[in-house]
Nucleic acid binder design. Sequence first.
DNA 1: CCGTTTACATTGCAGTTGCATCGTAACCAC
DNA 2: GTGGTTACGATGCAACTGCAATGTAAACGG
Lengths: 191, 191
Amino acid sequence: MPKKVDHQERRTLIADALMRVAAERGLEAVSLRHVAAEAGVSAGMVQHYFATKDEMMTFAMAVVRDRSQVRVTEAIARLCTTPPPRLLTRTLIAALLPLDEQSRGDARVALAFLAYAAARPDAVARDDSTDLLSFVAGLLPTPDARTAARGLLALMEGLGLYLISGKYSAEQALAVLDAHLDRLFAAGENA
Amino acid sequence: MPKKVDHQERRTLIADALMRVAAERGLEAVSLRHVAAEAGVSAGMVQHYFATKDEMMTFAMAVVRDRSQVRVTEAIARLCTTPPPRLLTRTLIAALLPLDEQSRGDARVALAFLAYAAARPDAVARDDSTDLLSFVAGLLPTPDARTAARGLLALMEGLGLYLISGKYSAEQALAVLDAHLDRLFAAGENA
DNA sequence: CCGTTTACATTGCAGTTGCATCGTAACCAC
DNA sequence: GTGGTTACGATGCAACTGCAATGTAAACGG
């Protein structure tokens, strides 16, 4: 077993470089050589860790997803135990929104990947959003909670788009989210 | 003035071909030659009508935007004069949603363009969404109508994303929209 | 010390890209 | 007709693409 190197570490290092290129110059600027240059390694090394470009893209996609997962987990962990449903919901959604510059870069890449995967049905990864939907639905007090949860998630995605494009500021997005939660939780308590 | 040809017509013909390529094989498959082949013309002709690829992309982007504009106008024109605000709002938003297969293709292309323009600040077109925001805000009976309108538009964009990816069906999307409008207009009437 | 396995780096190749250039045919004013 | 302008088509080119092939250095088992 010669020359021990942490494969996972190298792959994420390359994936990070890929995301930097994609965030700054768009997904179409992502090539083996560009990513290698951004990572400060040779193109051959990239090929050593990813047999094909698609494999590299898929891996980077998974990294983006994992990062957002971590953001959510950390944000919720920062809460007290057994927080009220509304606070938990708000924290969860806010953690998924690209509010700071770093997560905005991630979201830009995620958007590019979305468009990339739209025409590549095989590269589309597993669907983890049904779990999220069920979880959010469980938090909402409204009748037909699943429909309300779908609406909340759609609102989140839309806010993400507007945040990326700079059309809404972080404050505006949060104001919209809070107003929506006002309506959701007010309606539920009355019923 | 030799050889009269309708420039606008040729350009839209090429743009249509571009959108077909983008919808079927992704934006990255859009090249001068592919578009030319799809349009059934020579690559030289494409160059004749678009000096650069970016110019072609920008034009196609404008065509997509115009088409959605037309869809909205037609849907509203199909309504009776002076419809109630809620119906008008619903019709407007529904017309912007990619509910059928044709508009879903358009939306896919629009999404790809969004990602394309995210890293190309110069190619971004004029912002026509502020007019839309003001218009929708004028329809809503809620206090802080602009925030509510922002939420509604964000919801629409998010629903569009989920419709494109096939995660929500058209019926589900409309159910979400109606539930949201229920809350918006109920809250306003109570206030 | 030796062979094998891993970890790269280099080079090359066929294909594609956007675009410039050049040629030519059509049309119209005169 | 002639000249000029427009509308293409054909060709070429430098740059780039993903990827295969090949090389080499290092670490370890024996």
